[in-house]
């Protein structure tokens, strides 16, 4: 499956990665070669094979419904780039 410039731009937008044209051109090239290597998978017949999401066949353990966490806002917001009145600030979001 060939990779187009538009595919890279689209992925970059979905991933919110700023790319200039020069970067984008380089990534089209790199990603194209990676996908070429990945395309080797298509040669393998996997009809009827169930996808494997986890290496072990174990199931989800459930947690008791208990409040175990207390307020650590001050501590957590020490590493935040912009806060005011306990809120994280971002450029205005237009609804």
């Amino acid at each position: 499956m060939a990779l187009e410039h538009a595919d890279v731009q689209r992925a970059a937008h979905l991933a919110r990665l700023g790319l200039n044209d020069e970067d984008a051109a380089r990534y089209v090239d790199d990603l194209g070669r990676i996908l070429e290597m990945v395309d080797m998978l298509q040669a393998l017949d996997t009809e009827g094979i169930a996808p494997l999401a986890h290496p072990l066949d174990v199931t989800q353990r459930l947690r008791a419904d208990e409040v175990t966490e207390s307020d650590q806002r001050e501590r957590f917001q020490r590493c935040a780039p912009a806060v005011e009145d306990g809120l994280y600030l971002v450029p205005r979001v237009v609804e």
Partner: peptide, 15 residues
Amino acid sequence: KSLHEDFHGMTGVDL
């Protein structure tokens, strides 16, 4: 929740 009150033209986020 995003709060759009005035934070100098910014939006405040309460998680």
